[in-house]
Design a protein around this nucleic acid. Sequence first.
DNA 1: GCCGTTTTCGGCCCGACTGTTTTCAGTCG
Length: 573
Amino acid sequence: MKNADVARFLEEIADMLEMKGETPFKVRAYRDAARRIEGLRENVATLVEENRLTEIRGIGPSIAAKISEFVKTGRSSYLEDLAREFPKGMAELLEIPGVGAKKARLFYEKLGISTVEQLEEAARSHRLMQLPGIQEKTEQNVLQGIQRLKQVKGRMLLGTALPAAEEIIRELRTHPAAEQVEVGGSIRRMKETIGDIDILAASDKPEEVINAFVSLSPVKSVLAKGSTKASVLTEANLQIDLRVVSPDQWGAALQYFTGSKDHNIQLRTIAENRGLRINEYGVFRTDTNERIAGSTEEEVYRTLGMEWIPPEIRESSGEIEAAMENRLPHLVEIGDIRGDMHAHTNWSDGSDTIEAMAEAARALGYEYLTISDHSISMTFIKGLTVERIREQRRIIDRLNEHFEGFRLLHGIEVNIRSDGTLDYPDEILAEFDVVTASIHGGLGQSREQITQRMLSAIHNPHVDILGHPSGRLINKREPSEFDAEAVFTAAAETGTVLEVNAQPDRLDLRDADVRTAIESGATIAIDSDAHSTAQLELIRYGVATARRGWAEAQHVLNALPLDKLMERLRIRH
DNA sequence: GCCGTTTTCGGCCCGACTGTTTTCAGTCG
């Protein structure tokens, strides 16, 4: 049983309770619990076994009992009772933008509607208009909401959302009335997936900025438009929300709209204890209503008695306590990255030559680039034979003769086969500067088998890096199940480096695992896994993931300068 | 349903936008 399964289970209960008309606070209790479970670094099953569920904030005896039953039996008598009141699948009505619990319940009770298809049919035949409080406009909105639901199912990758947001921001910043424009919400926190794109602007003439926003070139339709906020849908079906505040409210608003929700709630509590009130307009004294901060984020945090907290770690997972005690981590930055340890060329499934990749890496200011093509068993993508390995080596050696202050390292992404053996014998592996071992197949094996495969690679003296450890593809393939504690501890003991793969659909290790790995004493490598020159720049998503895992430069292999890196990997000069 | 260095009972973030209202409910973030 995975944490995500338990989170979904709790969400389902929350949906049912909401439709039932339960008090919103009870509903929220289940949603909060779901979010906590989802962000949990430990396996929830372990917590159930050890009776430690209630140690999690937001989980009390009642929710703990329901989780326990669900984890142990795979069922829940409570949810089954609730499900008797509403037909199965009815909760999907709540996913339609503009349809909440009240309308869903209305549709069901008056018209017997319990699926999106039935609702769509009813709206088309204008049967919704028979209902109280529903006119033609609402019916239209329901239909549009269903269309949008079909188009934007699921959360989009950060790698999709961020470039789209940056394009809008670039355009908005050219508007004379826009003093500041910044991305907010989960993009600013660099979460791996994004729901909506939130953009914040500061201006004394909000209407002008709003008008400019809704007429930008990528905008397909305007979903809502007021005097201080607007929502649009782009040609690529991304929803973008803009909020405009006055320049003196900038810091408070940016802080507020960056979140996370849990982070803000914790800040609010701290403010209250200090006789302060904090909202998107500023920080105020509760007694006199005097506004004492709000123009910059730094000011907001300082007023609450803490250092400014980097957006990536604003998740209410210890960062506020750390900020109050002046012990925030010094998070790794993109400028700390001295080179890339994982890149492919047209020798296997990459699209560019070794020379082109080297030039692109030099253009980024790197001191080194590891060429790591696929190994022999990946036949369908030209995995390297021993002959081609040696030929590649000669080319790399020759290129290195011409470089000043830059070096190509000869690496390989060697496949960890289903039985845990590697694709080449030790004497071949010994020829490489860098060996990255990755699992590409057999991801559905048991936890024990996967763990064993990882451990045997980690204990191989020639393996330097464990590549994209969990093998997940976000929204496509679940991570493999493995004993993270055993793997991270072994990595720390052997000095085997764990990869943080920066491909936007991988981000593997994921943020929470980065933090656990570092706490276990392991080192990480932030790698682009580039398959073209342009993809080298995906490294920023890896840096963001590492930052979300509280990684500092000292934890990152490729933050080392070339000479230290070669020492660490025992590469001959 | 959860939580507590004011509380074991009484709170729980709250403001903007839309549509259908004639003063406000529902939804969203």
